[in-house]
Amino acid sequence: MAGWRQAVELAMTDDEIETLTALSRSRTEPARRVSRVAMLLAYRENPSFFAVGQRLGAHHQTVQRCVE
């Protein structure tokens, strides 16, 4: 039987968060990079792969691969 999933901890400095926030609003960066940044920021707020996937319209395994 499988055990409970352990949340992955994302350690980010304030400068990194500011940079990621700016990238998430970018209209010139590639779309895949912007979506990955959005996943990281959303996971930081709510550490649930499923919830982030639902919020962003992505599969939870995609979010998991991005975070890990």
Score class of each variant (00 low, 15 high):
residue 43 Y to A: 07
residue 49 F to R: 04
residue 42 A to N: 01
residue 66 C to L: 08
residue 32 R to N: 14
residue 3 G to R: 12
residue 52 V to P: 04
residue 62 T to L: 09
residue 61 Q to E: 09
residue 27 R to A: 09
residue 2 A to V: 08
residue 68 E to R: 08
residue 44 R to P: 00
residue 14 D to L: 09
residue 24 S to P: 01
residue 8 V to M: 13
residue 2 A to T: 03
residue 39 M to C: 11
residue 31 A to H: 10
residue 22 A to F: 03
residue 41 L to C: 07
residue 9 E to Y: 06
residue 44 R to L: 15
residue 63 V to M: 11
residue 67 V to D: 05
residue 61 Q to C: 10
residue 62 T to K: 07
residue 65 R to P: 01
residue 20 L to T: 00
residue 17 I to N: 06
residue 28 T to V: 14
residue 20 L to R: 01
residue 15 D to Y: 07
residue 36 R to F: 04
residue 57 G to P: 06
residue 21 T to W: 08
residue 14 D to P: 00
residue 18 E to D: 12
residue 36 R to G: 12
residue 56 L to V: 02
residue 36 R to C: 10
residue 25 R to N: 08
residue 16 E to P: 01
residue 2 A to Y: 01
residue 42 A to C: 04
residue 30 P to I: 13
residue 8 V to E: 11
residue 48 S to V: 04
residue 47 P to V: 02
residue 20 L to N: 02
residue 40 L to Y: 05
residue 30 P to W: 08
residue 11 A to P: 00
residue 20 L to M: 10
residue 33 R to F: 07
residue 12 M to F: 15
residue 29 E to L: 14
residue 63 V to C: 08
residue 11 A to W: 03
residue 13 T to I: 08
residue 64 Q to S: 12
residue 31 A to N: 12
residue 38 A to G: 08
residue 45 E to W: 01
residue 34 V to N: 05
residue 40 L to V: 14
residue 41 L to K: 01
residue 15 D to P: 00
residue 54 Q to K: 15
residue 6 Q to S: 14
residue 66 C to R: 06
residue 17 I to H: 05
residue 48 S to G: 11
residue 49 F to Q: 08
residue 32 R to Q: 14
residue 34 V to T: 05
residue 43 Y to V: 04
residue 6 Q to Y: 11
residue 23 L to W: 07
residue 7 A to N: 09
residue 58 A to V: 12
residue 52 V to Q: 07
residue 68 E to V: 04
residue 56 L to M: 03
residue 21 T to C: 07
residue 33 R to P: 00
residue 24 S to H: 01
residue 6 Q to P: 01
residue 39 M to I: 02
residue 65 R to Q: 13
residue 62 T to A: 11
residue 27 R to I: 08
residue 37 V to R: 04
